[in-house]
Nucleic acid binder design. Structure first.
Lengths: 119, 119
DNA sequence: CAGGATCCTGGCGGATACTG
DNA sequence: CAGTATCCGCCAGGATCCTG
């Protein structure tokens, strides 16, 4: 790193970081499950069919590091860990809902266009 | 494909497709450049510093196939091709702006949390 | 000018096995 | 229960060269 990068996408606009955050395959799904309250690791795992435990752990850790999710460990045997949205994380729910609404309203048009593009 | 996939993320919720669409590194940036009107290939290329010509072509083709962008070829020499947002594409601007607003308002908190997570 | 075709690499993410 | 550790396939995406 002799010189600063001429092009650092993370400095172009702050929304780039957000898009990286929510663009991955699991983040939004996990946030969705936590919308109604705290859940345990195994509960999230069961709610999101198809997620590997590696990716669940990894994404939860990342969400925690970003301050979007709070992780609470109850010192019991067997272990009991709960995850819940932080105040910051909850502020993200509304933008995501708006995005979801757009998808519900327009993704059939996208699907139609895509199908037409093939024919 | 002897049996249908038990877990097809594309059927879980329509917003998954949208997130795949806008989650990649270039889609939103390209849509952003087209917000104020049609542009030529080389103009977009110059506005988005760091994009390879392969990814620009590929993403534009994909946006066109999804009906979000309209591609117009003017039969001239040298070639003249313009890209602009479709009506459908323009409806996506508002949700994206809301997301961008969230990023502007809160990404510093995320950055702070992330920094604290390291120490 | 606006791409098409190729080669190549990093790292996302799945599978599996093991642990306190 | 809630993870950690390891191996590995796949492909998004960059670099490069070529063309109508």
């Amino acid at each position: 790193m002799s010189a600063p990068a001429l092009y650092d996408p993370y400095r172009v606009c702050p929304s780039r970081q957000l898009l990286d955050r929510i663009g991955d395959r699991w983040t939004v799904l996990i946030i969705g499950t936590l919308e109604d309250g705290p859940l345990r690791f195994s509960q999230i795992s069961r709610l999101i069919d198809g997620i590997s435990q590696k990716m669940l752990t990894q994404t939860l850790r990342s969400l925690e590091a970003d301050g979007l999710v709070v992780r609470t460990v109850y010192p019991e045997v067997p272990p009991h860990v709960e995850y819940e949205l932080s105040a910051l994380g909850r502020t993200l729910l509304e933008p995501l809902e708006i995005l979801r609404a757009w998808a519900v309203d327009h993704m059939d048009e996208v699907a139609t266009a895509r199908a037409a593009a093939l024919g």
